[in-house]
Design a protein around this nucleic acid. Sequence first.
DNA 1: GTCTATAGATCGATAGAC
DNA 2: GTCTATCGATCTATAGAC
Lengths: 193, 193
Amino acid sequence: MSSKRVLTDRGSAVPALAEAFREHGFEGASLTVLSKATGLGKGSLYNFFPGGKEEMMEAVLTDIDTWFETAIFSPLERATDPAAAVTSMIEEVTAYFRSGRRVCLVGCIGLNASGAAFADRIRRYFARWIAALADCLRAGGVTDPVAAQLAEEAVSGIQGAIVLARALGDEAAFLRIVQRQQSILIGGMIARG
Amino acid sequence: MSSKRVLTDRGSAVPALAEAFREHGFEGASLTVLSKATGLGKGSLYNFFPGGKEEMMEAVLTDIDTWFETAIFSPLERATDPAAAVTSMIEEVTAYFRSGRRVCLVGCIGLNASGAAFADRIRRYFARWIAALADCLRAGGVTDPVAAQLAEEAVSGIQGAIVLARALGDEAAFLRIVQRQQSILIGGMIARG
DNA sequence: GTCTATAGATCGATAGAC
DNA sequence: GTCTATCGATCTATAGAC
């Protein structure tokens, strides 16, 4: 047991909040929705998040940042086997985004005005992802401008795969597109490594 | 003059509605927002669209379908010069999406629960785009399964470019990514044409 | 056909009992 | 710390004056 408190701390509500924001968006996720999603009354939510919905979203984004940092960004940067690290990244994002059934909350809220309050975090998330992937590609022997371009296209490609798979209701489309991205990334390294 | 009525018909409000839905999303676009965007009072909006917001969105989606059919899908299918048709498609979508400053409404509303009522239209929009582009690629000599895959990846790539460019606030990123998609598409045709 | 006024529901947020 | 009750604001939608 790493914590003295056994349940119902602020952090344990965050995953349910994240899922509700993903499914309904920031404006669509009313406090009634968030209350049902977490199983907590409005009073409890405001006890944990005095800043209301905006603070809830901030907590969710922080949680997402932490997860990606440990599961995606850091492994890419510390990779001893860059090709394996790329493969692992694709596997992790495929599981995380549930083959496109689960949207990328960071990407989604960046698309409309409700995300203006989080613009900096959104920008840093994508910049960080691209930088970490480019780092990995450089470790795999890809020269500098090409690494940045390949990384940008791969991260963009994953986002596009989510949009398309959701729109078509076709998880296979997500898998095809990200597998193709994986091939391009690894192919780029083999060609120069 | 093709019409007897000179102004304030239902259709003339649609572009402003579309822009409001793009910027705020379906839930975020309140009737107050839509009223200000169109310059029409709520009463006038309900006079044109008795079904409320949902009918407004339907009208917007129909307008988008019409535009894409004439500017994108049909030219792709009727292309005598497939490479030129692909180049034209990229130019048109770059202008239409304002280098990623303007989001794809169809893709956006497909991402959360508010788009459930329009799921069929969303699916058909993307299926139609991919099919038309694959048609063009086949006319350019690309064999069947490859054409479908390249078309899927290109449409997905454009959507990803919008998400990334919006998130980074970087129009240049959009341009780089779609130019790359154009190269892949035309390269695929040259390799087999 | 346009507007203002307003109904009825739901919103985010707070207060207070326990 | 949890809940219910409720506030004022805003929402969608309607009614009615002009």
